[in-house]
Design a protein around this nucleic acid. Sequence first.
DNA 1: TAGCCGCGATAGGTTATGCCTATGGTCTCC
DNA 2: GGAGACCATAGGCATAACCTATCGCGGCTA
Lengths: 303, 303
Amino acid sequence: MELRHLRYFVAVADELNFSRAAAKLHLAQPSLSAQIRDLEKELGFELFTRISGRVALTDAGHVFASDARDILADVKTATQRALDAAHGKAGELRIGTIAPVTFALVPAALRNFHAANPAINAVVHDIGARNQLAKLASNEIHVGFMPLDVLDEAQRSQFSVKSLVQCELGVVLDDQHKLAARKTVSLLDLAEETFIGLQLAGTDDHLKWMRRICKGAGFSATFGELADSLDNLFSVIAATRGLTLIPKLAKRPLPSGIVYRPLRERELRYTLAMVTNPKFPSALLSRFRKIAEAEAAAVQKRL
Amino acid sequence: MELRHLRYFVAVADELNFSRAAAKLHLAQPSLSAQIRDLEKELGFELFTRISGRVALTDAGHVFASDARDILADVKTATQRALDAAHGKAGELRIGTIAPVTFALVPAALRNFHAANPAINAVVHDIGARNQLAKLASNEIHVGFMPLDVLDEAQRSQFSVKSLVQCELGVVLDDQHKLAARKTVSLLDLAEETFIGLQLAGTDDHLKWMRRICKGAGFSATFGELADSLDNLFSVIAATRGLTLIPKLAKRPLPSGIVYRPLRERELRYTLAMVTNPKFPSALLSRFRKIAEAEAAAVQKRL
DNA sequence: TAGCCGCGATAGGTTATGCCTATGGTCTCC
DNA sequence: GGAGACCATAGGCATAACCTATCGCGGCTA
């Protein structure tokens, strides 16, 4: 079945007269008859009754006519929507995030962006860093937010990378934990501790990140349970006296009994970067980037 | 644009690889490339970027892909719906009525019908008698309810006509009207009165009907205002001391100040008939007719 | 850096099919 | 009963959808 069949069918259903419908379609009547016959053959039932010199829709034809009209209208709308998207007038901006570290930045940036671009539908995909890189390559997302250090040499030249916010690291732990008494904590104090990894969007990015940092300090971290949400993380920390490493950027109001202590190693910094793919340039995206950079500056100031 | 283009486009959008998509479509790769190129040419913008040995959707392509998928799914659903309708499994039953005289019969019949045929969507068109006959001829309605006497000789042989309910006629008038004092009213008493016609669904069927009855009694009726609803009718009757003729079947609880008086001419009967078109036989319709006949018998008994 | 490989675009030929005109069959209407 | 309206059928043509063969380009490997 082709749209031609639907177009011809709707024309005949409108006119209830093959000759007039054919004229409207700039078509000879036998051609139209043949197409309708083919359509009926493919569907396996009659769309029209041609008895007594009069054409009328069958019941099935009635049902099909209304659906066919809808489909033809949908095709028209779809092409218009796509055209608008091609011209940047409307469409989608797909954004990759890591919720716990972008919550201070992305929602605020989106608010500003939407105010300036009300016809654009922004979609946030909370999918972890490595997933973002894959989807950036295929234009499945337009822009990603991720820690700078997940990007290797090749990726840094393949993508446009813009550092947005820099911050210290810190430890989240139970206030009954012996290290909670200190104002700051050194990485080396953590060599014998159990780390709780945060498994976000099914990725082990956070775990790998902590392992790399500990390796840099000269020890291999011990890992306990994995938490699959922030709430869960706090529960696990309270229950197992484990602890976790986070960038200060990810610090939120903590539940009672849970505390945050900055790392003494101030040279260890977390850098949140905004990554885009220069192969898919877009005026829309440029506008969003500008807004995100401004918002990032504000976030940096507040830190 | 044809559905073929959408099918091919969706396949490539799924695979992001022309060769694999072509294989899935049982098509050679150059044919697929050509069709996509044609589609892009017709739309006026690119759906894919083919740079750097990799195929990716453009933003417009993304939008169009999701719409195209919907359209293809809709086509599938539409054919299934029509097939169901062709087999009588689902679909529509379109009924023509004259609300004021069918209110006692049609809603009750529909309730029973729907209980037995839950997949059928019954649609009631309140369009007057003559309109019903036109729509019966073209299968726009499957069954109509109308007074028997609107059907002429030709129509009685063209359609299946089944008398359902017979009743007396009566006069609706203000209780301050001098004729309201009588228990019954003779048609000849009305020769000097003003008749109020009920213009239902834009038709003057009721007016013509009254004129014909008066002619039969030997006088020409005088007509006053037209009322376009029952409520309006009562207001006009109260305001102008006009009156109207109705079949007892159409008698409802009347507002205070308005009364109904039977016509003394008991030989004048109103017959409500159910009309169908034998050119469009349908098991569904037969089932409905049976139910309507049963319901009509009950209505007749209550009169 | 050379050469292979994967993949899409291009070129050229074949076939299917959508369209045409001419005509036939059936119904309605005068 | 003849005319006209109207849809179906028949037969021919031209477009275009499809094929195979080949080119060109980028990425990857030796």
